[in-house]
Design a protein around this nucleic acid. Structure first.
Lengths: 171, 171
DNA sequence: CTTGACCTGTTATGATATTACATACATAGA
DNA sequence: TCTATGTATGTAATATCATAACAGGTCAAG
């Protein structure tokens, strides 16, 4: 897989990679490269544990529980106490490199690192894949409703459970 | 507080009770009466434990953890093991009489029992009150985004964290 | 008055998450 | 280079949230 690639790379242009067939090795490598850039820009450090956690999350478009991540870390010779995983995950979330899925108490790698966004998540109840969808329209709708009640929204959790295209076809 | 009240009751007409000054005793009594009606209509039973859990949730417009509910139950002479609380809460959620707030791992009484709805929740990070907002517009926006990706949404979790009117004014 | 469905109680355990403290590492300033 | 500082990691202990499995009770239909 190339460390650099053309700006019109079809993989990167795909609106959503989780449900579409795509060159996943590229997808993951690209996310990792972006992560390097993001952390450098933020003066934060993508240390070995943090990098490894991101790699683990990038293995597929699923959400992993903290203890699943921890088990993988321990197998790789890192510490095997919960804070090791939770701290790395928290770091990645802060940096916008991963997201927490509230419904699953689990974490997934960000599909669009570096781009400011607060996505909505589409969670397939059959294959457990997780995709990011554009949340802006829904967020605006919520803002309108909240404004009516005088409530000032700061952060939103938008998660949808359902069937992804392939599982829908299979059913 | 009246056991019955006019259909144009101002309390019931309030678009959202959580953030607005209102006759809360009335609000709670009304919700309880509706709960009786809903369970009767569904051929399910609002037993003493379940009723008591609902009363506890109705004490204010907040979300309570299962163990908080459990402590209250135990103090009232009900069982004090987790399943007692979880089962009653699960029942209330199934009947549409309570909602689970994913972000808080907690439960809140439904503000509009009997009306079919899948609300969005507005959670004040300062006073921890929880209000229900109309989710339909946001849900439709999500449906459009999901449709674009071929994803079929079945259920959504829409939760917003921010400041309620009074906490916003105080800040 | 018994059967079957459902509800409640209890024990035990599993799953998720945090606090507190000790140690190690990176790096900037003396 | 040395050392002080901030930051990161390791570990133990514990807190918090949730469920499985089974025993006993209640109640209404047959």
């Amino acid at each position: 897989m190339p460390q650099t690639h053309p700006p019109d790379c079809p993989g990167c242009a795909a609106p959503d990679l989780a449900f579409a067939a795509h060159d996943h090795a590229h997808c993951a490598a690209d996310a990792l490269a972006r992560a390097e850039a993001v952390t450098a820009a933020n003066n934060s450090r993508l240390t070995p544990v943090r990098r490894r956690v991101l790699e683990i999350l990038l293995e597929d478009h699923r959400a992993l529980g903290a203890y699943d991540v921890l088990a993988r870390l321990a197998a790789d010779g890192f510490g095997n106490q919960p804070p090791v995983a939770y701290r790395a995950l928290e770091f990645l979330v802060e940096q916008g490199l991963a997201h927490r899925i509230q419904r699953l108490n689990a974490f997934t790698a960000c599909a669009h690192p570096g781009e400011a966004h607060a996505p909505a998540f589409l969670i397939c109840r059959a294959c457990h894949s997780v995709a990011e969808a554009e949340a802006a329209p829904a967020r605006e709708a919520l803002d309108r409703e909240a404004g009516r009640l005088g409530f000032a929204i700061e952060r939103t959790t938008l998660e949808a459970l359902g069937l992804c295209p392939s599982c829908k076809a299979a059913a």
